[in-house]
Measured scan of single mutants.
Amino acid sequence: TLATPAVRRLAMENNIKLSEVVGSGKDGRILKEDILNYLEKQTG
């Protein structure tokens, strides 16, 4: 899974598996926005 260290840390802090997040960046890269959108969906 393609993600920057900052995105990986954000995911780890929120107990998110990067494999569950759909990346919207180039080549499927997971962006910070993708993590935040995933969190919004989870908290509903």
Results as ranks from 00 to 15, higher is better:
T1K: 11
T1M: 15
T1D: 13
L2D: 07
L2K: 14
L2Y: 09
L2I: 12
L2W: 07
L2G: 01
L2M: 11
A3K: 04
A3L: 04
A3C: 08
A3E: 07
A3G: 06
T4F: 04
T4Q: 03
T4Y: 05
T4I: 02
P5H: 15
P5S: 09
P5K: 15
P5N: 10
P5Y: 07
P5L: 10
A6I: 10
A6M: 09
A6F: 05
A6N: 10
A6Q: 14
V7E: 04
V7Q: 02
R8N: 07
R8H: 10
R8W: 06
R8Q: 13
R8S: 11
R9A: 12
R9N: 09
R9C: 03
R9V: 07
R9G: 06
R9S: 07
R9I: 07
R9M: 11
R9E: 14
L10E: 04
L10Q: 04
L10Y: 11
L10S: 03
L10M: 14
N14G: 06
N14Q: 08
N14P: 00
N15I: 01
N15K: 14
N15S: 05
I16E: 03
I16L: 05
I16K: 03
K17W: 03
K17R: 12
L18T: 03
L18F: 15
L18Q: 02
S19P: 07
S19L: 04
S19G: 11
E20C: 05
E20G: 04
V21Q: 02
V21M: 11
V22E: 14
V22A: 13
V22R: 13
V22Q: 13
V22D: 09
V22S: 12
V22K: 15
G23L: 00
G23I: 00
G23K: 01
G23H: 00
G23W: 00
G23A: 08
G23E: 01
G23C: 02
S24N: 06
S24Y: 15
S24E: 03
S24D: 02
S24V: 00
S24G: 05
G25P: 01
G25N: 02
K26Y: 07
K26S: 10
K26F: 04
K26W: 03
D27T: 04
D27F: 06
D27R: 08
D27K: 07
D27Q: 08
G28T: 02
G28L: 00
G28M: 02
R29C: 12
R29W: 10
R29D: 08
I30Y: 10
I30F: 01
I30P: 03
L31R: 07
L31Q: 10
L31S: 08
L31N: 10
L31H: 05
L31P: 02
K32D: 07
K32M: 10
K32A: 15
K32T: 07
E33H: 09
E33A: 12
E33Q: 10
E33T: 10
E33P: 08
E33C: 12
E33L: 08
D34V: 00
D34N: 09
D34C: 00
D34W: 00
D34E: 01
D34A: 00
I35R: 05
I35W: 02
I35G: 05
I35N: 03
I35E: 06
I35P: 03
I35M: 06
I35C: 08
L36V: 13
L36R: 11
L36T: 12
L36A: 11
N37L: 12
N37R: 14
N37M: 14
N37H: 10
N37V: 10
Y38N: 08
Y38K: 15
Y38F: 11
Y38G: 08
L39K: 15
L39H: 09
L39Q: 11
L39C: 12
L39S: 13
E40N: 12
E40H: 05
K41Y: 09
K41T: 12
K41D: 11
K41S: 12
K41N: 12
K41V: 12
K41G: 14
Q42N: 15
Q42A: 14
Q42D: 13
T43K: 15
T43N: 07
T43C: 08
T43Q: 14
G44M: 09
G44L: 02
G44D: 12
G44Y: 08
G44W: 05
G44S: 13
